[in-house]
Design a protein around this nucleic acid. Structure first.
Length: 805
RNA sequence: GCCGGUGUGGCGGAACAGGCAGACGCAAGGGACUUAAAAUCCCUCGGUGGCAACACCGUACCGGUUCGAUCCCGGUCACCGGCACCA
């Protein structure tokens, strides 16, 4: 018979669905294992090969763990709120819910087509009211604990999406999604106080098994920095507190700088002798986009505030104050002390404005550049009582001194900003709050959740940048749950990231109407044992969901501090030429086409074989054929009942080696070498015809990678049950080695010969055999043996030198 | 600039607690089977020299440690990812 993959795959996919082969059970006696992949955004383009790599990998892991005897939760769902759907809906005049429904149906079909062993009874959809009821509920808890607050501040505004963006959504000064320029805009927004969790988000990384680059990236993003706040004063009498990591350089301060957004500027404007010049600068800074403002190596700009000076807290001297856009309002206090001798940015600024540059740390040449090195090489000078100390000594000494004098205090700062949480768009979770003139912001009654998205005529954003919901006066006007008076609903919606912050919890108990999940389910399944996802989510989804989880832990909803025990990440699938797949390059590979041509099993095997899972890999249609050939070769071996209930002696060693290697490789995500080893075993079977027992082991090991063909051949061979329900085979270490082995013989570290010895030969026997080799004997003629090294019974190195007479 | 990572045949990639570099696959060449082609099966396949046995050179580049280095150390170059005026 021919290997008819289409028929076989259809047959088994229907069988699995009908028999709920991969459904799992809450509270089973078996040990639990929760394998998680990032649920897809159901776009109109359908499933991408980029989805297939992580999904297949975790499917392999999930299938292997079932064979190891675990009760495996391997769920899937859809992160379906978001702009592309909304934009499509606007353009084609279809309700986004309808678009979402169609896209989910298409994705579901494609995911089933690839044979993933998801538990289809636990699918979640973030746009389903019974789901977003709980997203809203969590938001209300955040609000009640004071972690959601409304603030007016300069926010990132995407000029094309007409929508506010979180800092994490701004990439290179542009919108993460559409790439359009992002400008700053003063707006009143809902914020989530993720910075309150900054310390824990860093510290608790020590307790989880995330790959190192994820931890590093999160730590850098949170950007913890220890320093000192030092209180300068202005001649107006106002405090001018600055944050510095280099309090040791306090005697080197020659000027101060305010950020253009600093409120003092407004306050002081009337007192300034050059108010026109200053307001012009402030306006100009406000007009610049993030990108323009942060352009590297650009000339420093700024204006001195004439008529107001700062007072140095130690020397009491007056120093000039400037406004310059190199100081950020969002970090520290928005005021910086200028130490041009020891900070390159300050040096650039001081040079441009002819400000004095004072050396307070010796060791560099401050006429050429700032000497900013913070180790033991610098010695303090011109710094009163600090003179003679190294920088390393001077920092704590000064920190203590300013604290004692009451002019400073140790302080930790973070780069992480609070999360801008409102979006002026339709297709998101409504924020369940109302505004009452008398009572302020009031949460709606939890009994009224979910607060449904109202039907609107048009999804277009309004001209003034308000959400489409703002036009729905019937919906907006309501009564205050607190005083019963007239009130208005919040019309902004939540960002796309909201629903994905907690979706893995819903999988544990997806149909619960009383809670986001029952306590029993949470206790049983928490935490996620293994979560694989893209690096691009490290500072977005992964960080946000850790934050929400910690909050849920604090209010007693979830049993663990961290949501995910283990986090791994896959490399991207690139196009055939090694470039990123994109429509414009025309190098996008559609999984549908590959499945139609070669079948899902080939697709799965190839995507696992393509290269190191953690690194990027380029698609190769030729290599796909190689994987099809591999499956064909197995088919040809097993497409007829084989004989023999015992292992073939000649095949035994390779068989045991394969069991060991494939099992280990799956755990370590070395899927490519796992398949290479399966190929080696199949090659062995072409040398020595396998018995039915040999084939049994191969099919069990093949089944996580190519489940359909494995199941079909399992049936053809007449084995009981399903291949995927067998236990992972056990190997015998002693049988992985042959009776003899080859030992490499080196002379002076260079390979000269190989000798064959018994597998259990002693080191002496190995050396004896090596020296007996004809070629080695020739090389040893007239030489003296200085040293003999035997490494792990695998290699002999003979060190020779000319014989002395 | 800072923080990560990666450089291995014609190609994708193996091997790294220092121990036979190139597993496995692709492409290529040869052969078998075919009237023929496809498919399949069997060989060869890092470079240079040699009829050959064999010799020498090879893991981005330069140097070091070692009996022995793709692997460790110092330096250089290139590429990829993240952050980027964070005081």
């Amino acid at each position: 018979m021919k290997y008819d993959f289409s028929a076989i795959e259809k047959k088994w996919q229907e069988y699995w669905l009908e028999h709920k082969t991969y459904a799992c059970e809450n509270g089973s006696e078996k040990p639990k294992f929760f394998a998680l992949v990032e649920f897809p955004y159901p776009s109109g383009q359908g499933l991408h090969v980029g989805h297939a790599r992580p999904y297949t990998a975790m499917d392999v892991v999930a299938r292997k763990r079932r064979m190891d005897g675990y009760n495996v939760l391997f769920p899937i769902g859809f992160d379906a709120f978001g702009l592309p759907t909304e934009n499509y809906a606007i353009k084609n005049h279809i309700h986004p819910a309808k678009v979402t429904e169609e896209n989910i149906a298409n994705f579901t079909k494609q995911l089933r087509m690839l044979g993933y062993s998801f538990d289809w009874d636990r699918v979640v959809d973030t746009t389903d009211p019974s789901y977003y009821k709980w997203t809203q509920w969590i938001f209300l808890q955040l609000f009640k604990k004071g972690l959601a607050y409304k603030a007016s501040m300069p926010v990132n505004w995407c000029t094309s999406c007409k929508c506010v963006l979180a800092n994490e959504e701004v990439v290179d000064g542009g919108c993460e999604r559409c790439g359009s320029p992002v400008i700053r805009k003063e707006k009143s927004q809902w914020m989530l106080a993720i910075t309150k969790y900054a310390d824990r988000l860093i510290d608790d990384l020590d307790d989880v098994d995330f790959i190192e680059r994820v931890k590093i990236q999160q730590r850098n993003w949170i950007g913890r920095s220890e320093g000192t706040e030092v209180r300068f004063a202005a001649t107006t009498g106002d405090d001018m507190t600055v944050f510095t990591t280099r309090c040791d350089t306090l005697f080197g301060v020659t000027y101060m700088v305010l950020s253009p957004e600093h409120p003092y500027l407004k306050k002081w404007l009337d007192q300034l002798e050059n108010r026109e010049e200053v307001s012009a600068y402030i306006e100009q800074a406000a007009r610049k986009s993030d990108f323009e403002r942060s352009e590297l190596n650009k000339e420093k700009t700024g204006v001195r505030l004439m008529g107001i000076d700062a007072v140095h807290p130690v020397t009491g001297k007056n120093i000039p104050i400037y406004v310059s856009d190199y100081v950020l309002m969002g970090y520290g206090t928005g005021i910086v002390m200028g130490v041009p001798g020891h900070d390159q940015r300050d040096w650039d600024f001081a040079t441009k404005f002819n400000l004095p540059i004072v050396e307070v740390v010796s060791g560099g040449d401050i006429t050429k550049e700032a000497f900013a090195i913070k180790d033991d090489t610098g010695i303090m000078v011109n710094s009163d009582f600090l003179n003679g100390l190294t920088v390393k000594e001077a920092i704590p000494a000064m920190k203590q001194w300013v604290t004692e004098k009451g002019i400073g205090v140790p302080k930790v700062n973070f780069k992480l900003r609070d999360w801008v949480f409102s979006r002026q768009r339709y297709w998101g979770e409504p924020i369940p709050l109302v505004y009452c003139e008398k009572c302020g912001w009031v949460p709606i009654d939890e009994q009224e959740l979910p607060l449904l998205l109202p039907e609107v005529e048009s999804y277009e954003v309004t001209d003034n940048g308000e959400s489409p919901l703002a036009k729905m006066t019937d919906w907006v006007n309501t009564t205050c749950p607190h005083c019963g008076g007239p009130a208005k609903r919040e019309t902004d919606t939540m960002p796309q990231w909201a629903g994905s912050c907690w979706y893995f919890l819903r999988y544990m108990d997806p149909h619960n109407n009383e809670a986001l999940a029952s306590k029993e389910a949470l206790d049983y399944w928490s935490p996620v044992d293994w979560y694989n996802g893209g690096m691009e989510h490290t500072t977005l989804h992964l960080l946000y969901s850790r934050f929400w989880h910690k909050f849920l832990y604090d209010i007693g909803v979830v049993p663990t501090k961290e949501p995910y025990q283990k986090r791994t990440s896959h490399g991207m699938i690139l196009g055939e030429g090694g470039e990123k797949m994109s429509k414009s390059r025309g190098n996008v590979v559609n999984p549908n086409d590959i499945v139609a041509l070669y079948g899902a099993d080939t697709m799965r095997t190839y995507i696992m074989f393509v290269g190191d899972f953690e690194k990027a890999a380029a698609w190769s249609s030729n290599a796909v054929k190689g994987c099809k050939r591999f499956l064909d070769r197995i088919w040809n071996l097993a497409d007829g009942r084989l004989e023999g209930d015992a292992h073939t002696p000649e095949n035994e060693a390779e068989l045991h080696r394969t069991i060991k290697k494939v099992g280990d490789d799956i755990e370590n995500m070395k899927f490519n070498t796992a398949i290479a080893q399966l190929m080696t075993l199949v090659n062995q079977f072409y040398d020595v015809k396998p018995s039915r027992a040999d084939m049994r082991e191969l099919l069990v090991m093949l089944s996580p990678f190519a489940p359909h063909i494995a199941e079909e051949l399992w049936e053809i061979q007449g084995f009981e049950g399903l291949a995927c329900e067998q236990s992972w085979p056990v190997y015998d270490e002693s049988k992985t080695v042959a009776s003899t082995k080859e030992v490499a013989v080196q002379v002076g570290g260079k390979l000269k010969a190989t000798v064959t010895v018994a597998a259990d030969a002693s080191d002496e026997d190995i050396v004896k055999a090596a020296c007996a080799d004809a070629k080695i004997q020739r090389l040893m003629e007239g030489m003296e043996l200085v040293k003999t090294i035997v490494a792990k019974g695998k290699l002999v190195n003979l060190v020779l030198k000319p014989q002395s007479k």
